[in-house]
């Protein structure tokens, strides 16, 4: 029973990781942009959300309604002002630029919010749960998982069926050829990064409802997102979703073996996948 419980809790945890990983799948998997500030953006948005909640007395869903557009705008500006200048065949310039941004964001957050951990009051939402056959399932993690699945579905449909999605896939396959077909790669990329960071608006609210956030926490989010994308396989959003589940389950099962082994066991699964199936579990060879 405790292993079934670990599996269930792992999948629910995977829902949280999927919300970090989707944006990463779009930026890293599709555009080949390495955004080192990915995790710091989650934390920044979380802290902004917490401040909004306490200053204006907003509930978590009102905070979400404010954060998502803000996150979209952040992403758009990030691509226009920084990443479009460094994007290209070579991923190194974008890596260096976002590494600098990551450090700058962390310092900025320390200045504004101090190093303390904070969280978003959920009005009791965070502690509600239902019991099914002896397993307690938290309401909030279920909502997180459903939202993650909904976002994945939406993103997948957008990439496959919509004009913007086709233009983005074309630009990712061959930027020059996309331009030769009338696509403006810079505006397509700006839109894609806006969406990638926009999703972090959801992640930020759920992250700060589920646990606490502090300015230095971004690194862990970055690593989890990165691991989920690699485990799932680059370039597929359902792959990133599934990779998040695998990572969540690995951590939950590891945690049952020994509480100190949880996060480490996720890293081990990631390294195993990288060694044995570098294209990812669901990626094409």
């Amino acid at each position: 029973m405790q292993w079934v419980d670990a599996l269930v809790q792992g999948i629910l945890l995977g829902g949280m990781y999927a919300q970090y990983a989707l944006g990463m799948a779009l930026m890293f998997g599709v555009m080949r942009i390495v955004n080192v500030s990915h995790g710091d953006l989650v934390i920044l948005l979380s802290l902004i959300g917490i401040s909004l909640a306490s200053s204006f007395g907003l509930g978590p869903f009102a905070v979400m309604a404010a954060l998502v557009p803000l996150a979209l705008a952040f992403g758009w500006i990030l691509q226009r002002a920084v990443l479009n200048r460094v994007v290209g065949e070579d991923p190194l310039p974008s890596l260096i630029a976002t590494f600098g941004l990551s450090l700058a964001l962390q310092n900025l957050m320390l200045q504004i919010w101090s190093a303390n951990s904070r969280s978003l009051p959920g009005g009791g939402l965070e502690s509600r749960s239902i019991e099914i056959g002896g397993i307690y399932i938290g309401l909030l993690p279920v909502i997180v998982l459903l939202v993650a699945a909904g976002l994945t579905l939406g993103l997948d449909l957008m990439l496959k069926r919509m004009r913007f999605g086709r233009a983005l896939r074309a630009a990712s396959a061959d930027v020059e050829a996309a331009a030769m077909t009338g696509v403006n790669p810079k505006s397509v990329y700006a839109m894609a990064t806006a969406i990638a960071v926009g999703i972090l608006g959801f992640a930020a609210v759920f992250q700060s409802l589920r646990s606490t956030v502090a300015p230095a926490d971004g690194g862990a989010q970055l690593i989890y997102a990165f691991e989920a994308v690699i485990i799932g396989g680059m370039g597929s959003v359902w792959g990133a979703f599934a990779g998040s589940m695998v990572l969540g389950v690995a951590q939950a099962v590891g945690f049952r073996i020994d509480p100190g082994f949880g996060v480490l066991s996720g890293h081990i699964v990631f390294l195993l996948v990288l060694a044995l199936r570098p294209q990812g579990l669901f990626g094409r060879a």
Binding site: A167, A170, A173, D174, E176, M180, G182
Partner: peptide, 23 residues
Amino acid sequence: PEGRRLFTGMSVSDNLRVAIDQS
């Protein structure tokens, strides 16, 4: 273009649709 430069990973009709979308 030289070398055809198709959008790999996409179907024939999706390759063509990229152009239709824009034009």
